[in-house]
């Protein structure tokens, strides 16, 4: 049994008085890819934001490599090796592509990723490295956002809505590149609306519904029927 890198125990999360997550317990093992699926508003993004320290009010535990990271600031958590590719890419518009990558790289952790290895993975970015990042196409922005996360040489990489708003052909190429991105020893959590894509890429899958875990299991063993029941709540 490999080590648990990340686990939440009965996690509750709140926006003010509004509770968005109810007793969500999710485990992530070393080298594993899990997918989180669910309808809009099911709490997928809230989960990702809780884990990365962006939600002020959470209850119960989040452990990373056996130590609690609950209550740490987002920048402290990031320095421990959790990187996020945020929903909507969220590149820094007033920075060039290369500057965006360098911002990711200012967390100095050891590992294979530096400017030239990122450029080898995404040659398009090399050609556009000096232009403002908001002039990139959607697909190129997603590559830059992935590259920016990789630059910190994380142990766990989180993809929030990895394919939302991208053209099918771009999504295909991003999924083709994922095995190169999530290299040996790294773990990943992918939030994805496309169920078949999620099942294909992941080892295990969790389905959220109205802030609760409605279903989880090995991606290969879950049936379509079980998933649609958990997804839509019917």
């Amino acid at each position: 049994m490999p080590n648990k890198v990340l686990e939440t125990k009965n996690l509750n999360a709140y926006y003010g008085d509004f509770q968005a997550l109810f007793e969500v317990s999710i485990d992530l093992f070393e080298g594993e890819i899990i997918a989180i699926i669910g309808a809009n508003g099911a709490g997928k993004s809230t989960f990702m934001r809780s884990v990365t320290g962006l939600i002020d009010r959470i209850d119960n535990e989040i452990n990373y490599k056996g130590l609690s990271i609950k209550g740490l600031r987002a920048d402290e958590i990031a320095k421990k090796g959790l990187a996020m590719v945020p929903e909507g890419r969220k590149l820094f518009p007033s920075l060039s592509v290369e500057e965006n990558l360098l911002i990711g790289g200012q967390i100095k952790r050891l590992g294979p990723w530096k400017l030239n290895t990122v450029y080898e993975l995404f040659p398009d970015l090399y050609d556009k490295r000096n232009i403002p990042s908001n002039l990139l196409s959607g697909g190129q922005q997603q590559m830059a956002a992935i590259g920016r996360a990789l630059m910190s040489n994380p142990d766990v990489i989180l993809f929030d809505e990895i394919s939302l708003g991208l053209a099918p052909i771009i999504i295909k190429s991003i999924y083709q590149n994922l095995p190169k991105v999530i290299q040996k020893g790294m773990s990943a959590i992918i939030v994805e609306q496309d169920i078949s894509k999620a099942l294909e890429i992941s080892d295990r899958v969790y389905c959220l519904q109205e802030g609760r875990i409605a279903l989880f299991g090995e991606s290969k063993q879950l049936t379509r029927q079980e998933i649609s029941k958990a997804y839509f709540g019917i």
């Binding site: 990365t52 320290g53 600031r73 987002a74 500057e99 200012q106 967390i107 920016r148």
Partner: peptide
Amino acid sequence: TALGRAFRATSDDQEIAQLMGLSK
């Protein structure tokens, strides 16, 4: 400079800058 880059990134989006390890 790297400091200026951090200034501009934080100015653009404080939340994402924190995700990149910058202490606001």
